[in-house]
Amino acid sequence: MVTVLIISIIIVLLVLIVSLKVTNKAYQYKHTIDPPAEDLNHSKHERKTDA
C-alpha cells in the first residue's frame, strides 16, 4: 500500500513539474500579428462605395 502511495506521489510531482515548464514556455512565446494587406482593404472599401 505504501509503495502505491509513493509511486502516485512521484507521478503527481512529475506531472506538476512538466505542466509548470510548459506553461512557463507558453507565456514566454511572443505572438505576432501580420499587418493588414492594403490592397484587400482598399478593394473592399471600393466595393462598398460603388453600390
Rank of each mutant, 00 (worst) to 15 (best):
I6C: 15
I33F: 15
I9G: 05
T32K: 03
D50A: 15
Q28H: 02
V18H: 03
S43R: 07
T23Y: 03
K48T: 08
V2N: 11
I7K: 08
L20F: 01
V4W: 09
T23W: 03
I17Q: 05
K44E: 01
Q28D: 00
K25N: 06
E46N: 08
I10Q: 00
K44V: 04
I17D: 03
L5C: 07
R47D: 04
R47M: 11
A26I: 03
S19L: 00
I6F: 10
P36D: 01
D50T: 13
E38S: 09
D39L: 09
I9F: 04
V12A: 14
T3Y: 11
A51K: 13
I7W: 04
Y29K: 14
K30H: 04
T3N: 10
H45D: 06
A26W: 02
A37I: 13
T32V: 04
A37G: 15
H42P: 08
K44F: 06
D50N: 13
Y29I: 13
T23K: 06
R47V: 08
E38H: 07
V18D: 01
D50G: 15
P36H: 04
L13W: 10
N41Q: 07
K25T: 05
I33G: 15
T23R: 05
D34H: 11
H45F: 10
I11H: 02
S8A: 14
H31E: 05
V15M: 02
T23M: 04
R47H: 10
L13I: 12
T3G: 14
D39G: 08
D50F: 15
K44A: 06
E46Y: 07
V18G: 03
T3H: 11
L20K: 01
I9P: 02
V4Q: 12
